[in-house]
């Protein structure tokens, strides 16, 4: 990506005046969500946020008049993550800079273990976990964002927690004991 001063000036001149401001303001929160969605892959997370915001840009004239453009951008982020399989698969190797799954290691680093556990979930299950347990969204809110039924969200939550518990239970127990 060309980020030379000339390019930035040209972009600033061409973009709607408040899009860049919006993107800069929302980039951080969206990145943090994307960081979890991508299982801790910083580069893929930035790429995901860029893609989501670029889709917002395409509809910016309409989006900017919404009551909650930030909420819209977040919904686009999740939908981009879930639907954009080809991009995700092609970039999957970047996430593998993390060490081997630490779920069984004697002295696991919690963050690495957690992120790797997230990577074992399907895209939708991971999105459900991030929405429910990081963003503290209700089942109904999660269902609305992911365009799933509440039943599906509950089912996916149950399964994902079961999987995460199997992978993280010992780690949490060790941390509590320590």
């Amino acid at each position: 990506m060309d980020l030379s001063p000339t390019t930035r000036q040209a972009a600033a001149a061409a973009a709607p005046p408040d899009f860049l401001e919006f993107a800069a303001a929302r980039g951080g929160p969206l990145y943090r969500t994307a960081y979890l969605l991508t299982g801790g892959d910083r580069h893929l997370a930035e790429d995901l946020v860029q893609e989501a915001l670029s889709r917002v840009f395409v509809r910016w004239r309409r989006v900017s008049r919404l009551e909650n453009p930030a909420g819209y951008a977040q919904k686009v982020l999740f939908n981009t993550f879930v639907s954009h399989r080809r991009r995700r698969s092609s970039r999957e190797s970047a996430a593998h800079e993390l060490p081997e799954p630490a779920v069984l290691d004697a002295d696991p680093a919690l963050r690495v273990t957690l992120l790797q556990a997230l990577q074992t979930l399907s895209a939708r299950d991971r999105a459900v976990v991030v929405l429910r347990y990081w963003e503290d969204r209700s089942v109904e809110e999660t269902a609305a964002i992911l365009q799933l039924s509440s039943t599906a969200v509950r089912s996916r939550t149950h399964r994902a927690l079961h999987r995460m518990r199997a992978l993280l239970g010992d780690t949490f127990a060790e941390r509590a004991a320590g």
């Binding site: 899009f19 993107a23 801790g40 930035e46 919690l110 963050r111």
Partner: peptide, 25 residues
């Protein structure tokens, strides 16, 4: 643990994301 992982995440290039989104858009 999720919050801790996010807190420990490397900071993003917010400006780069914004301009990149504009270019891609």
């Amino acid at each position: 643990a999720l919050r801790q992982a996010v807190d420990d995440a490397p900071p993003p290039s917010v400006e780069g994301i914004a301009f990149g989104a504009h270019q891609r858009g």
